[in-house]
Design a protein around this nucleic acid. Structure first.
Length: 573
DNA sequence: TATGAGCGT
């Protein structure tokens, strides 16, 4: 980074910090001295931001570009990076077998200056809707893998993006990499990372920003601790617990009785029963804290499950609130997965359904194969259908009487059994329009398999059904991705063959700018193709147009262009 | 609440 830019950034930091009320507030947040123009040379720490303008160590012109969408090609990167200066070469790294992009690339410039400029001007540029992350290529993994200088920031305001984070933290030293964690839609997850070149810079950043307000939010800034290190620390903490949680305590038990019960095992610093805020009545649980762990552990061993005034106590290590919540979340997730795998092999995906087919009719179609636990036609929400309905109502005015007697019912919740149907109120509510597919779940896999072989391609209301075993959402998703990748690969090869490109260059795609002399390329000015072929570009004469299109009205295979992926599975899978 | 990914010809 140039000195001029660095100064700008520092000034900007000072002003940003002021604007963002980083200077403390009534809530007791600490005050940050952002005055970097009046540094007391004897007080290094108070000086705060100590930016370094150190050039990167290798003095190469090779950039690593990460966080790329897998569809990003060399050509797209060339278009962007050549705006900065003369690009020597670009390579998107790909899996050796599947050729799927690994999500990162190298951009090599002819000069280091251009590399620096790209780092300053192109970092976090959106490519295919995702901000790219640019670093100097650092081939020595050891330098990257020790966590030196890596800082973790949480409780970030969602408005703080990569650039804002970078600008804020650049004042403390040279940043190798900086990122705000994002969800799939690109929204901030409220935490991020700043990896400095040196530990000193990281220490300065932590010292000066931890606990400060950024966009009204008090941020935590600390050393990045990898998951496994945090976990082992947590294990150690758990192994030395002194705090105990007790439940199933008779409500008539007094604080004193409760405390006495535990004092037999050692010195207790506190023993309290949870009480209702209004009535003051015991809520039947409480906490006991011992001075030392051994006594706490003995109390758990001796008292758990023991009778206390007529009730069997639960006594265990007390969890932190978030720990307990996480445990509950995990067990919920485990239950969900178990439920999903239970459907494996018994749940059928049925598509190309006529709009007239409702849950009831779907069940009837399949009931001869065995015992059906649920049959469900996926529908738009009534709201989505409302507009269309309204229009239809006008059209149907002539047939009004007919419509009024039509059976309507509300879309049912997931997992509800169909047996309710008979007793369901025939309320005159609008039913969402059928999405043309649904799910039929059998009791056992044999019934399901038989139904697939007998019902697939069966004509129903003049439409051939597509019937297959339903796939789990994640399985389906990865299969779709693989097929798209394979399709693009074929297109690339077809395009290359058409252009007369030697096969070997398809195996190791490397983009050289037009005009660059590279061995094996067609001479300039010949009839050679523009290089490289882009995924998704139309290929004259290539077979079949859009893959997955089918003829004579028969639906494509499940891996083709079926209903939108998000609707393929019932919500319980 | 939250603690990443990542290096080739």
């Amino acid at each position: 980074m140039s000195a001029a830019t660095q100064n700008t950034t520092v000034d900007q930091l000072a002003s940003d910090l002021n604007n963002a009320s980083l200077n403390g507030d009534a809530n007791g947040a600490a005050t940050l001295n952002t005055d970097v123009s009046n540094v007391n040379s004897e007080d290094q720490d108070a000086a705060g931001p100590t930016p370094t303008n150190a050039p990167h160590p290798q003095a190469s012109a090779s950039l690593y570009v990460g966080e790329l969408d897998t569809s990003v090609t060399e050509a797209m990167l060339f278009e962007l990076f050549s705006q900065i200066g003369s690009v020597a070469s670009i390579r998107v790294c790909r899996d050796a077998i599947s050729r799927r992009s690994l999500g990162y690339a190298y951009v090599n410039y002819n000069t280091t200056a251009d590399g620096e400029k790209a780092l300053e001007e192109l970092n976090y540029t959106l490519i295919k809707g995702r901000p790219c992350r640019i670093m100097w290529s650092q081939r020595d993994p050891a330098l990257r893998k020790n966590g030196q200088g890596n800082v973790f920031i949480k409780n970030l305001d969602v408005a703080i993006d990569n650039k804002a984070l970078h600008d804020t933290f650049a004042a403390f030293g040279n940043i190798l990499s900086c990122k705000v964690a994002q969800d799939e839609s690109g929204a901030s997850k409220g935490y991020g990372f700043v990896h400095y070149e040196t530990d000193e810079a990281a220490a300065q950043a932590i010292k000066h920003v931890n606990g400060m307000l950024l966009n009204e939010k008090k941020v935590f800034v600390g050393h990045h601790i990898p998951k496994k290190d945090r976990q082992s620390k947590f294990e150690e903490m758990k192994a030395n617990f002194t705090n105990i949680y007790v439940k199933n305590i008779p409500v008539e038990a007094t604080e004193e009785e409760f405390r006495e019960l535990f004092e037999k095992f050692g010195d207790v610093t506190s023993a309290s029963l949870a009480r209702d805020a209004e009535t003051g009545k015991s809520r039947g649980f409480g906490f006991v804290n011992f001075i030392n762990h051994e006594h706490a552990a003995t109390a758990v061993d001796e008292l758990n499950g023991k009778d206390f005034k007529g009730q069997d106590l639960y006594v265990g290590r007390a969890q932190k609130k978030h720990e307990r919540e996480e445990e509950l979340r995990r067990s919920y997730e485990a239950a969900r997965i178990e439920k999903a795998s239970k459907y494996q092999g018994v749940n059928l995906y049925v598509k190309n359904l006529d709009d007239d087919i409702d849950d009831e009719k779907l069940r009837e179609l399949f009931q001869s194969f065995g015992s059906i636990t649920s049959a469900k036609v996926m529908r738009d929400t009534p709201a989505e259908t409302a507009e269309a309905e309204e229009k239809k109502e006008k059209d149907d005015e002539k047939n009004k009487e007919n419509k009024d007697t039509k059976e309507t019912k509300e879309t049912k919740k997931e997992g509800e059994a169909e047996t309710e149907e008979a007793s369901a109120p025939k309320a005159k509510r609008s039913l969402g329009k059928s999405k043309g597919f649904g799910f039929v779940c059998f009791n056992n896999p044999d019934e399901a398999t038989k139904a697939v072989s007998d019902m697939n391609q069966r004509m129903v209301n003049n439409k051939p059904l597509y019937v297959a075993l339903a796939q789990r959402k994640d399985v389906r998703k990865s299969q779709l991705e693989a097929s798209i990748q394979a399709r693009n690969q074929i297109r690339m090869q077809q395009a290359a063959a058409q252009a007369g490109m030697p096969q070997q260059y398809m195996q190791a795609p490397m983009f050289f700018p037009p005009g660059a002399q590279q061995p094996g390329f067609l001479p300039q000015g010949g009839r050679g193709m523009q290089f490289p072929p882009q995924a998704g570009m139309p290929i004259p004469g290539a077979q079949g147009g859009r893959p997955g299109q089918f003829q004579a009205g028969f639906p494509p295979q499940q891996a083709g262009r079926g209903a939108p992926a998000g609707q393929q599975m019932p919500p319980n899978m």
